[in-house]
Design a protein around this nucleic acid. Sequence first.
DNA 1: TCAAAAGTGTTTTCCTTACACCCATGC
DNA 2: GCATGGGTGTAAGGAAAACACTTTTGA
Lengths: 231, 231
Amino acid sequence: MQNNLPHIQSIFTADCVILGFKEGELKVLLVERNEFPFKDFWGLPGFFVDQNETIDDAVKRILFEYTGLKGIFMEQLYTFGDLQRHPQGRIITVAYYAMLRLDDAIKLAPSSNYVRSAKWWSIKDLPELAFDHNRIIAKTLEKIRRKISHSPIAFELLPEKFTLTQLQQLYEAIWEKKLDKRNFRKKMLNYDVLKELDEKQKGVSYRAAKLYKFDKRKYAKAFQNGINFSK
Amino acid sequence: MQNNLPHIQSIFTADCVILGFKEGELKVLLVERNEFPFKDFWGLPGFFVDQNETIDDAVKRILFEYTGLKGIFMEQLYTFGDLQRHPQGRIITVAYYAMLRLDDAIKLAPSSNYVRSAKWWSIKDLPELAFDHNRIIAKTLEKIRRKISHSPIAFELLPEKFTLTQLQQLYEAIWEKKLDKRNFRKKMLNYDVLKELDEKQKGVSYRAAKLYKFDKRKYAKAFQNGINFSK
DNA sequence: TCAAAAGTGTTTTCCTTACACCCATGC
DNA sequence: GCATGGGTGTAAGGAAAACACTTTTGA
């Protein structure tokens, strides 16, 4: 950093891993590229950041353009700058991940002409993606596997009202590990961050489960003591 | 990302939070700036990344230039892109943190002419720094506070041979919290990641303590089971 | 012999784990 | 009435936390 900026300029982009949860599986939103490089490959939604917006704002903007949603949970993941990651030269990308509730009928609206289509993919069964996007998704998984132990990010992926079984399935999907139903419920209720509702599941052909809400106020209290949704 | 790169170019830098541990305190290496902006302010060592090196390599290079050391532990922290962080326009910086053993007499060699001097500061008592560097250091602290619970990064800051009391003081400095001696030792030895040496502290005017080494092989085993140096 | 830090065990409490059966509902 | 998931308790083991005194050493 010098007085007269030497204008060593670099190209950088932002890529976003948009996650959802449906049918007991973690899903990731991918786009089909319509231009070189990696034409016809699937990859993460990526974009340039304007000179007059923060990276966070740029990601919010793009999330809105793709999903029509605002206020989505998002967080910076990592910045990738390998020399080989882009065939046209070293392009640095700041990767983010975002989490949203897939229950609302989200209309996917790929807004840019470099994108042919957009689709939710099961994160367990991805093709070879453009650039280093497989690696970025792998790193996202590592991150959220750790993070759901001490942060209430799981609730970002669930409908506002959910059953304990849905919550458990989400943890199981992220950790790729079966959990004991009784222990899971005991522990989760013990944290005292859920609000039990006077409402039950509807439209199922078996005993309807109670619905719960995540309670931010309770969580704020519990957080002081260092909560730990351990495996 | 498009076929013909639109060359929306951005300036970006890398900044490095270099940490050491001495006299029971966490230290951070700061440089005194010799040029505008923020002339005469102290700040983090920052630098441009060449077009043909990865960000990691650039940080390694700079660490070597400043300290004469290679193989220092380092990790990416976060990428900061606020619009106001640099008075001359939006400059994105990728922040790293690094940890080294301060016991070796490290000769600080500020290599660049934008730096007047370099000095170790106690992290608890910092002046107002250039740019958003106070914030970057705060974020580093948050990160390592979490990270020392499940990673053996503490050992990066200690001499190769250390006493249990030194190790405890380091945890206490990072967590800003007194720990119980007996419980700390019991727990730490229980993890089975330390090797007890046939050697004792020298040059102290009281009962000399046993020296220990961190044992990477033992750690690798313990790691499988999900180690947790909890508070 | 004194000052300074090293070193050491036990008890209580709490969290984690393992484990299996009956219940409610819709079809 | 049957298939499907909902919902529940207890015992045992292990980790965490609280707590204070004796030992060693050099000056």
